[in-house]
Design a protein around this nucleic acid. Structure first.
Lengths: 118, 118
DNA sequence: CAGGCATATACTCGCGTGCGTATATACAGC
DNA sequence: GCTGTATATACGCACGCGAGTATATGCCTG
């Protein structure tokens, strides 16, 4: 589970996964679409593979990467244990709390600016 | 979304979230239960808070941390877009292979036609 | 207001990781 | 076999982050 989260926490890997959701892709195609150079793509795909999120199939010189269902299923099951938490009807309360936190952050910025000045 | 994954990717933060699933806890209690010293707990909680995963409530000198539903809900919605992936296990890769083979056959035909023309 | 308790922050260190460049490996076609 | 193409790996660098120690902040009680 940690590996799954760690793999998805990296923005470019997240983008790769999002792209692979539409279907299998070759390494070069991923690099072109996401504006990444090839070694980075290969290395990210290696991490994704070790996390079990993708699988490879050799096709001549190309390697086709595709999403694997297992980690996603496990994530879904994990999330399911939190259903009680996220199904609570706190929509409006969330908004209010966020507002207050935003104000708090403003205040902190003001403090920080003042402290730096002196 | 990246922040949520990054927060949960860290094993100790993951454990904190798992603990908070059972209800709000004070900082010291978390540290004792998970065998972490206090500064680490505070720092991890800070990350979790910035990711929106927890919220604090002051209780005298104590701070009670509790899970917040929003990021979990967003994760669930995100995962939902991948439902197809973990429900259909096969087929996708095979289809692409078929496609490539079809293209290959087209090329062969073109070659053959050209050869005949001359 | 002094002393103790609960929590947050500052500072440093060591390690992991993403990135770029260069190079290696593998395969196809001629 | 040679060439071009597709992908993987090696190496060096810079930065971020988790951990430990020490210290600061805040609140309650007497």
């Amino acid at each position: 589970m940690h590996e799954t989260f760690a793999a998805l926490a990296e923005p470019n890997r997240y983008r790769i996964v999002e792209l692979l959701r539409t279907g299998p892709r070759a390494v070069n195609e991923i690099g072109e679409r996401l504006q990444l150079n090839q070694p980075q793509v290969s290395k990210h795909l290696k991490v994704l593979k070790e996390a079990g999120l993708v699988d490879v199939e050799a096709r001549a010189q190309q390697r086709l990467y595709e999403l694997r269902p297992k980690p996603l299923r496990e994530m879904h099951r994990w999330l399911d244990r939190y259903r009680r938490v996220w199904e609570e009807q706190f929509e409006q309360l969330d908004e209010v709390v966020e507002e207050l936190e935003a104000k708090e952050r403003e205040k902190e910025k003001a403090h920080a600016a003042r402290d730096k000045r002196k």
